[in-house]
């Protein structure tokens, strides 16, 4: 279980305030909220780009802020993928496995697994600048997954894709998660993406986590006007409409 307890971080004018959250093993958790609410900061603090000013992030009895990013067993996929431009797709993917000194035959086996799972065999010798958004996305995901991270952090991974690729990739994410069963935290501002993928959703607003629940719970009982407005429903009214929508989930 990954447990954040009153995690706070001040970054310039932005303040991430007292985020407390428990995410179960094997859970697909989506952090949902408008742009600029601190969703990425949450991921980057878990991954170790920032140290929280206060609070703790516990995973398997270990306080993650006490560990360097390289010891946290985390996979990170950025919105714009951040593929290493000077390395080929293959070199990008096996980067982590080589750094962690996996035996050569294991690296090959893992690479084959990734290639099979994500269908990127034909791209291996190309450089990132020659890939489409979807291809970069698959490469970034393969790179993050090759070291079998316990926690996978996805920062708006679908936002740079066209609607068709987005739909396909959404299904792939679900399939991959069902196969690997690691903790996945996925950040997005797209509610449809969230209800399709999430076991539970956390809604963020102005650096605060304002509501956590299953998609159905959140949709049926938005905790505030903000949540209701953001989801496109009205708070404590038009309940019938909401119920109709929930039945379709």
């Amino acid at each position: 279980m990954l447990k954040m307890v009153q995690m706070s971080k001040q970054l310039g004018d932005f303040h991430l305030a007292d985020v407390s959250l428990e995410i179960n093993d094997g859970e697909y958790f989506v952090v949902l909220g408008p742009t600029g609410t601190g969703k990425t900061v949450v991921l980057e603090t878990i991954a170790g780009m920032y140290q929280p000013d206060q609070g703790s992030i516990i995973y398997n009895d270990q306080n993650l802020p006490d560990l360097y990013p390289e010891h946290r067993q985390i996979g990170f996929v950025y919105q714009d993928y951040a593929l290493f431009p000077h390395l080929t797709v293959k070199e990008n993917i096996i980067f982590g496995a080589k750094i962690k000194k996996f035996p050569i035959d294991e690296i090959q086996k893992k690479l084959d697994q990734m290639v099979e799972m994500l269908g990127i065999g034909h791209l291996l010798h190309r450089y990132p600048s020659t890939l489409s958004g979807g291809e970069q996305q698959r490469t970034a995901l393969a790179r993050a997954l090759i070291t079998s991270p316990k926690i996978l952090l996805l920062d708006e991974p679908l936002s740079a894709l066209d609607p068709r690729s987005k739909e396909v990739f959404q299904q792939e994410l679900k399939r991959i998660h069902q196969r690997l069963k690691n903790i996945t935290i996925h950040v997005t501002h797209d509610f449809n993406e969230a209800i399709f993928l999430a076991d539970r959703i956390g809604i963020m607003h102005k650096g605060k986590l304002v509501q956590v629940g299953t998609p159905k719970e959140i949709f049926e009982n938005p905790a505030s006007d903000f949540v209701a407005n953001f989801l496109g429903v009205e708070h404590r009214s038009k309940k019938k409409d909401r119920q109709l929508f929930c039945m379709s989930l």
């Binding site: 980057e44 991954a47 170790g48 780009m49 360097y68 990013p69 390289e70 946290r72 985390i74 996979g75 990170f76 950025y78 951040a82 290493f84 980067f95 982590g96 750094i99 962690k100 790179r143 993050a144 070291t147 991270p149």
Partner: peptide
């Protein structure tokens, strides 16, 4: 972009490795 280095760190590099490899 400093995020290249950060991604390298999440993939297992220490600061020096991230510097020399990325």
């Amino acid at each position: 972009d400093s995020r290249f280095e950060f991604v390298a760190r999440t993939l297992g590099c220490n600061r020096m490795q991230a510097f020399f490899k990325i």
